[in-house]
Computed example of a mutant assay.
Amino acid sequence: MSVARPNPAQWLWYAFGGGLPARYASWVLHDTTTRTWWLRHIVRCVVQVAPFVVAIVVLVPGPLWLRLMCSLGGAIMGLIFSISYMHETAEHRLVKAGYPPGTGPAARAERTADRDAAAAERYAARYRTPPAA
């Protein structure tokens, strides 16, 4: 199945929190539930923080080292905040795309169900089986 991808301008709008047209709903689901969804979230956060970093380095007077350190500190704080609310942000994006609440965690759990079951079996075999006498 082919998923319609937004163009770069639409993606930038989406990265800054804007909604996409309904035809991109399947792409939003893919974006927020794929194996690398957390990495995609971090890239969106870096895109959101980048203009402020550039503005501080270019426009604020003072020594370059101080401007760079202020930018770095602000970027790190922004990343920490964004990562703290990663699941909620992904869920909000899905709700804006028309999906019911809970779609993201359910889709991610479904995708990893086989792997989780295999890990549980390995754990049970290793730690729950009595040792051989």
Rank of each mutant, 00 (worst) to 15 (best):
T129N: 09
I76E: 05
P63Y: 07
R40P: 00
F81Y: 12
T103H: 02
E121A: 15
C45D: 13
A25V: 03
A22T: 13
C45N: 08
A106R: 14
A118H: 06
S84I: 06
W13S: 08
V47F: 05
A124V: 03
R128C: 09
L79Y: 02
R40S: 08
Y24E: 03
V54A: 12
L94F: 02
H30P: 04
P101R: 14
R93D: 00
Y14I: 03
G78Q: 05
T34S: 15
L72Y: 12
S82V: 06
L20S: 02
G102L: 02
I83G: 04
A55E: 07
V60H: 03
R115T: 08
Y85G: 15
L59S: 14
H41E: 11
T103W: 01
R93V: 00
A106P: 03
G18D: 04
A113K: 12
W38F: 13
W13D: 08
I42N: 02
F81E: 07
L79Q: 03
V46N: 04
I76W: 12
D116E: 12
A55Y: 10
H87Y: 13
S84F: 08
P101Y: 09
M77K: 10
R35V: 07
G19N: 12
G18S: 05
S26G: 07
R108I: 07
G78F: 05
G102Y: 05
A15F: 05
A106H: 10
C45Q: 11
A109H: 04
D31G: 06
V47D: 03
P63E: 14
M69E: 09
I83N: 01
Y85W: 15
L39C: 06
R108M: 08
P6V: 01
V43Y: 09
T112Y: 09
T34I: 12
V58K: 11
